[in-house]
Computed example of a mutant assay.
Amino acid sequence: MTAIEQYLIDTWRASQQGAPMPPPPGRDDLAVLREVRSYEQARAVLEGRPARHPWRAALLRILTRPRAC
């Protein structure tokens, strides 16, 4: 069963029982990614490492590594 199908079943069930509607799938995905990034940066600071942006560091590694031709 896909997430959309489960969402439709949960929405129908909530309407039948008078319960609040569930959030649509994927609504909070970006917020979760931001929280994970903030957590990793905070953990880096507590461990004494620089709190750099992890995606920026990965992109910099990709752009600056020598290419094997």
Rank of each mutant, 00 (worst) to 15 (best):
P20A: 02
R13D: 12
W55G: 08
R43G: 07
Q17T: 14
G26R: 04
R49Y: 09
Q17D: 14
S38M: 11
Y7Q: 02
I4S: 09
P50I: 12
A44T: 07
E40Y: 07
A3H: 03
T11V: 14
I62D: 12
T2M: 01
R56H: 07
G26W: 04
R49D: 09
R67W: 14
P54N: 00
L63R: 12
I62G: 05
R65Q: 15
M21D: 04
R67S: 13
G18P: 06
A14C: 03
T11C: 15
G48R: 12
G48N: 12
A3W: 03
A42C: 07
R65D: 12
A68Q: 13
V36P: 00
W12A: 14
T2H: 02
I62T: 14
L8E: 13
Q6N: 12
A3V: 03
R27S: 12
A58Q: 05
I9P: 01
P20G: 02
E5T: 07
T2K: 04
L33K: 05
G18Q: 03
R34H: 08
A19E: 05
A42T: 05
R43S: 11
P22C: 02
E40G: 05
C69M: 08
R34Y: 01
Y39T: 11
W55P: 00
A44C: 11
Q41R: 13
A58K: 10
D29T: 07
L30P: 00
R61A: 14
A14V: 03
T2E: 03
L33A: 09
E35N: 05
R37C: 05
E40W: 07
A44L: 14
L60G: 08
A58G: 01
M1H: 04
L8K: 14
M21R: 10
E35G: 08
A58D: 02
P22A: 02
Y39K: 09
L30A: 08
A19S: 04
L46R: 15
G48S: 12
S15K: 10
Q17W: 02
V36C: 00
T64Y: 01
A31G: 13
P50K: 14
R34M: 10
R56L: 09
E47A: 15
A31V: 05
L59E: 09
V32W: 03
A42S: 08
P25Q: 04
Q16V: 11
